[in-house]
Design a protein around this nucleic acid. Structure first.
Lengths: 219, 219
DNA sequence: CTGTGATTCAATCATTTGATGGATAGATAC
DNA sequence: GTATCTATCCATCAAATGATTGAATCACAG
């Protein structure tokens, strides 16, 4: 049995897929309440009822969008992990910052949507996915900060969150931050990467060194 | 001439002030579009028309809220600056992270609102305050990363943004992140502080050391 | 061609939501 | 006491918005 979402992803030309694509972008920009079904329909160039025909209701569409972007992000992270697999920590960070940043700058709706979900409430109750927690633990393991994705200590989770969030922030806040630093697009992207590396690499490598010294002394 | 906002701040018991207070909280939780004037009025225990009588319209009220929280935050930062004034950089960071974090955990609407403004669009056009950019530069100077608030280089602005945002993230995302690390409130706050210091202090101090070595060599 | 199911749209509905007008009560000035 | 100004609420409006219905159109198997 294929879910509507899987069907949409299979054929990117289908109406289902076109709607989902536009919905990603608009929900990402305006958030759940800031988006109207009419905005999405207009952008796709169809009637609202067609949208309802394919996706049920606004809420349903939104949920599908969330699942969709999480799938994309997770897949990208798996891809990144393959590249950085056996490198030392500082290079792992360096490369994964580059790759992840580039990818998210090409798909800013992903960062937008994730952050809006973190920081904004929905009037209607009960939305909480276990997806994010789960793959935050994944990243921890992939960064070599935890053995397996079960039993990642809170301190490590927090560090991973800090890294991921700082990336999303600069992507999603581009409209705000870029004018502040008076840079055009390419320059801004370069600044983001440099800043992320400046902030994160010392933290993890310095403390790694500390741990190494410590374990030497102990052995 | 006193603006309505100044009047409201003067007398915290006034209806104006009570509305503003509730509006801060609700706009912070649900964002501009997610908040209805009725939600605010109900929470205050008044009729919507009373709200309109005092603050004009939803948009006006929202703008006032934004100005209000920026005033509060700025004042706090000035306060923090006095404390850390002449200390070495690593202590400056350590203390200002403690103070700022504590303050924002007591007033999470501030972080909520700032982040929602960064990351979410409003359907209606033209909202851009120059307040934020301005005092990002202020922080840079206060952290000793720039001589004066004019002419702060983009790289420095980005670093300051990274620090401020990472704080706001953990405050505003508490509802999401705290369950992820399975911590109760106090523990979470401690984790946040530890993580922030873990991430940021090495970055700035390590590079300061680098600069120092460099300037030694040059002299 | 014809019937059948899938897809799309125009029209419409019910509710929500931002906003206003006018009545009422209270305080203060004269 | 009367006038005036402030503050509040009730009733209501007009627009926006999520959703549905039923008719029209299209694709295509038989």
């Amino acid at each position: 049995m294929t879910t509507p979402l899987e069907k949409a992803r299979k054929d990117p030309e289908s109406m289902k897929a076109r709607i989902l694509d536009v919905a990603r972008r608009i929900f990402g920009q305006y958030g759940f309440h800031g988006t109207t079904t009419r905005m999405i329909a207009r952008e796709v160039g169809i009637d609202i009822s067609t949208l309802h025909y394919h996706w049920g209701g606004k809420k349903d569409l939104y949920e599908s969008v969330v699942v969709d972007i999480n799938k994309d992000l997770r897949q990208k992270l798996v891809e990144v992990e393959k590249v950085i697999h056996a490198l030392p920590l500082n290079e792992r960070l360096d490369i994964s910052i580059d790759l992840t940043t580039d990818y998210l700058f090409e798909h800013p709706e992903i960062s937008n949507l994730i952050l809006l979900r973190y920081f904004g409430k929905t009037r209607s109750e009960g939305n909480f996915d276990s997806i994010i927690p789960e793959f935050t633990a994944d990243i921890a393991r992939s960064m070599g900060l935890a053995r397996d994705k079960k039993n990642v200590p809170p301190e490590t989770m927090m560090k991973v969150l800090a890294v991921m969030n700082s990336i999303h922030n600069f992507i999603s806040g581009e409209n705000f931050f870029r004018p502040m630093v008076k840079a055009e697009r390419e320059r801004y992207i370069a600044l983001v990467k440099a800043t992320l590396k400046f902030i994160h690499i010392p933290a993890f490598t310095q403390n790694e060194a500390k741990y190494n010294r410590l374990s030497c002394r102990l052995s």
